[in-house]
Design a protein around this nucleic acid. Structure first.
Lengths: 219, 219
DNA sequence: ATCTAAGTTTAGACGCATCTAAATTTCCTG
DNA sequence: CAGGAAATTTAGATGCGTCTAAACTTAGAT
């Protein structure tokens, strides 16, 4: 059997759920891919038979080395494309995700190489996500979410690329990967987190904060 | 039902067979798409039900306006992409066809527009094929093949993009759209056509000549 | 004009990716 | 620790796009 676009999507999604630290369960995959849980079970069985993941009924899945390899290849395509579309074609950063989602399955290895070369073999995409290298070791540093980080000055490392609306809002208030912001105070009961971006103060609702990842800055 | 990549491929292929002046019969479509004639018949029925073509059993098909519209949109994508890949990404002209074949289904209208703008709304792709406009009238000028043209000076207008090997050969001898060449003599019984490109003389076998389209040059 | 070869369509099947509804298992709560 | 809610899997079905083998139609040659 061949590796279809759909198979690539499953593997990529499973990889990214696992990276986030959560167990990889049927429902989560189903939610992300917008298919029914039953569809996920059926696909998981096929992926397992193909050796891309190990599967224990009712317990969730784990990617094998060959599954991870495919996932990283697709993710590399995705992130290179996001950067390319933004830099070379001027597509606004809140729209590059959806374009890349389709194109990631359509570019050849030659094209991938050409794009990487033109961009100067970049290490991060416009949302701060690291780009897996063509070959060799790949380690993703895990950053705290805005919610979990301690008050004080922090650097924005990464922003989830999945919600265009959130991205437009973040761009508007000047919050991008690389920006230094200050977490002002925290409400222990899950209320909004107040942050200072430049000279302005903003309330970040909980549905937003889970999408921004930061690291502590020493001053 | 939705317009899948496969549907787009059928409509595009049917358009281009019709343009070449041949009747559009099952076997021809099957050969081009590398599927069985039975598959073509079955797909044709669906396309007919969708209103993309008219179909008379055993007689061939003809695109409707809505079928033509989709075909031209895909062809526009294809040709813009060929040009873009060549100009902006430096992909050699004998490889852009295969890349574009996949990407043509993957780019959004926004991306199409961005590419067209960057290229300055071009009218022809690297093989000399005209690029259908986003909207408005589209007429393809039909040129003679090298075989059919009269001896004398001619301008290369178009070269079929389908065979990478032929393209590499043509590039090697310096024959591209825009080049002026001289047809030296003709063998009425289908032998090679001798042409002068620059100062060199070349024999073009019949399997080659059907792929080069020229127009007479007045001197 | 008939017969045959080539082209085309039908019949029936298969794999992929999905769905809904029903059955099963897990896990949490009282 | 028992019972029910939530998660998961099974069963069975569907549409797409393809195939092979067999039947049929068309057109060309004698």
């Amino acid at each position: 059997m061949q590796v279809t676009d759909t198979v690539q999507d499953y593997l990529k999604t499973i990889y990214s759920i696992a990276r986030a630290g959560d167990g990889v369960h049927t429902t989560v995959i189903a939610d992300r891919l917008k298919v029914s849980p039953a569809s996920v079970t059926s696909m998981i069985k096929r992926l397992s038979a193909l050796g891309y993941l190990t599967y224990t009924r009712y317990q969730g899945v784990e990617l094998t080395d060959s599954g991870t390899e495919i996932a990283l290849e697709v993710i590399r395509h995705h992130r290179l494309l996001e950067l390319y579309l933004h830099h070379s074609l001027g597509i606004p950063w809140d729209r590059v995700h959806d374009e890349a989602e389709v194109l990631e399955h359509a570019i050849s290895e030659d094209l991938e190489d050409a794009i990487a070369r033109i961009l100067g073999d970049p290490t991060h995409d416009p949302h701060g996500d690291p780009i897996p290298p063509k070959s060799g070791v790949y380690l993703e540093v895990l950053h705290d979410t805005l919610e979990k980080a301690e008050p004080g000055p922090v650097r924005v490392e990464r922003v989830s690329d999945r919600d265009p609306e959130v991205l437009r809002h973040l761009a508007k208030i000047g919050l991008q990967p690389g920006t230094e912001i200050v977490i002002e105070r925290k409400d222990p009961y899950g209320g909004p987190v107040w942050v200072k971006v430049g000279k302005r103060r903003h309330a970040m609702g909980t549905e937003l904060t889970t999408k921004v990842y930061v690291s502590k800055v020493e001053r």
